[in-house]
Design a binder for these strands. Structure first.
Length: 487
DNA sequence: ATTAGGG
DNA sequence: CCCTAAT
């Protein structure tokens, strides 16, 4: 590919330089666009940054956009979509020189310095001292730090006043870039109040420093605390945190930024539940899910072990907020396996949750809680409705579902709606019951029946004056006050 | 804060 | 389940 870029193809402004040969900064790039290009030439498809691109003198002016992209990748460890040549050059120059001072329009990088080609300085700068290795090392180092930091940086540059030496410059650029890319990708909608609430909640929990599972690796806290100028403001939009995952790419130890989402937590009260909280069900495999289901079937009495996770080993799989802190040490796969093996304690606490990632049509992925309704829960719901009437869900929740910290009143309502639908849909024909292919939810017919009865009663109760006309407008207050279960 | 509905 | 509009 690189041969397709003849020297003449570039602007004519440069070619004479090489002929002068006085210093020869651009010589190598022209022989083979980049030193080592021949050795790596076949693998243009390689997805990992090729640091050999950074060796030796770099004459950015002679590079095609494609090559610039490669250099960019080698420099920053990530791809860019920017097509602007000048931008790329400047950007790379800034990255390599670790400085913003790249006012020049032609770029030759050498020994960590920017060399202007028709400048006498170039001549004086010929001494190739001990620059090369330093360059490569420096790049890698910067990259590392950069990713670490930018992972903690919220996308709105709250860190602009952070001082961490020269690297700050670089980091801000990185985040700015990242933000730009994402903006181009998609404009996410503003988070709702609830999102923000729960996020901050999750964070405060994090800070409250509960003694979490044994394997919690701290690692990130100290750094992050430095990185945030304003921790309170740290919550990024749409509830995502950017973390880095250590990729073992070709032994380079490159850190690839990836996006996690903090677990959303429903429980707002019930502190005891929170205390018993423990991470579980992370990185489950398909077989594991099955296991979980079996257990569920055998003793579907507590709401704790209905875990349904997608069988993916992707990093965003990790459910709990500990994800934010566990990386570096354990690769995602490691973690998944460990956790998978030690799936623990389906004992009946009503507190833990789990997260499922749901692919969105727009390409995004979002996580949602999912907790299968157990039979006991359904029963409680049903007789809760029978007692207090459908619609009085806050009541039902408070009285009949006190022990279940999840299951908001809205959940109850939704479930009831679904039950109604199910009960009315399936009953007419008995065949319907048999025809269900999914072993998912047996749906005890008895309950369904009861649901239907209740539903009818509710319906009648809410239409008082049409019936016998005896009780309608008399007693307490509203018509809803009637309690079908007792009347 | 709760409810009712739509998605 | 999630998200919103109405109360």
């Amino acid at each position: 590919m690189q041969e397709t870029v003849p020297s003449g193809a570039k602007s004519s402004s440069d070619d004479h330089v090489t002929q002068s040969g006085r210093v020869g900064e651009c010589l190598k790039p022209l022989d083979g666009p980049l030193e080592g290009g021949s050795s790596t030439s076949t693998g243009c498809i390689s997805s990992k940054p090729d640091f050999s691109k950074l060796k030796g003198e770099i004459c950015l002016d002679n590079l095609s956009i494609k090559e610039l992209h490669e250099v960019f990748k080698a420099t920053f460890g990530r791809d860019t979509t920017v097509k602007d040549k000048l931008w790329l050059k400047r950007r790379i120059a800034m990255g390599l020189t670790n400085s913003c001072d790249v006012s020049a329009t032609t770029f030759v990088i050498k020994d960590n310095k920017l060399v202007k080609k028709d400048n006498e300085d170039g001549f004086n700068n010929v001494n190739l001292g001990a620059g090369k290795e330093h360059l490569a090392v420096a790049v890698e180092y910067n990259e590392d730090l950069l990713n670490n930091l930018s992972s903690q940086i919220d996308e709105h540059q709250t860190t602009s006043e952070v001082r961490l030496g020269n690297n700050v410059v670089e980091n801000n650029f990185a985040s700015e870039d990242l933000a730009a890319d994402q903006r181009a990708a998609k404009r996410v909608r503003k988070p709702t109040k609830r999102y923000i609430e729960e996020l901050s909640e999750a964070e405060s929990k994090e800070y409250s420093g509960r003694s979490i599972a044994s394997t919690k690796s701290i690692g990130f806290r100290p750094l992050s605390s430095k990185a945030h100028a304003r921790p309170a403001r740290n919550v990024s939009l749409e509830g995502r945190t950017v973390n880095t995952r250590l990729d073992s790419l070709g032994g380079f130890g490159i850190q690839v930024p990836c996006v996690y989402r903090i677990r959303r937590s429903r429980p707002r009260k019930n502190v005891t539940a929170l205390l018993k909280f423990h991470p579980s069900g992370m990185g489950m495999t398909a077989t594991f899910i099955k296991k979980g289901f079996d257990v569920h079937g055998s003793q579907m009495d507590n709401g704790s072990m209905n875990k349904v996770l997608e069988a993916k080993s992707t990093p965003e799989q990790a459910p709990e907020q500990f994800v934010a802190e566990s990386k570096k040490e354990t690769t995602p796969t490691d973690m998944g396996q460990n956790m998978g093996l030690k799936y623990v304690d389906p004992s009946g606490d009503t507190s833990d949750d789990n997260v499922v990632t749901v692919p969105t049509a727009k390409g995004g992925i979002r996580r949602k809680h999912h907790r299968a309704w157990t039979l006991s829960e359904v029963m409680k719901l049903v007789d809760g409705v029978s007692k207090y009437g459908a619609g009085r869900w806050s009541e039902i929740k408070r009285l009949a579902f006190a022990s279940y910290s999840y299951r908001t009143s809205v959940d109850l309502k939704d479930k009831w709606r679904n039950l109604l639908k199910a009960s009315f849909a399936q009953t007419p024909t008995d065949k319907g019951a048999n025809s269900r292919k999914h072993p998912s939810m047996p749906i005890p017919a008895s309950i369904l029946l009861r649901v239907r009865e209740l539903a009818e009663m509710q319906a009648q109760a809410s239409l008082p004056n049409l019936s016998t006309g005896k009780l309608s407008a008399c007693g307490g207050r509203s018509v809803n006050e009637t309690r079908p279960g007792y009347l």
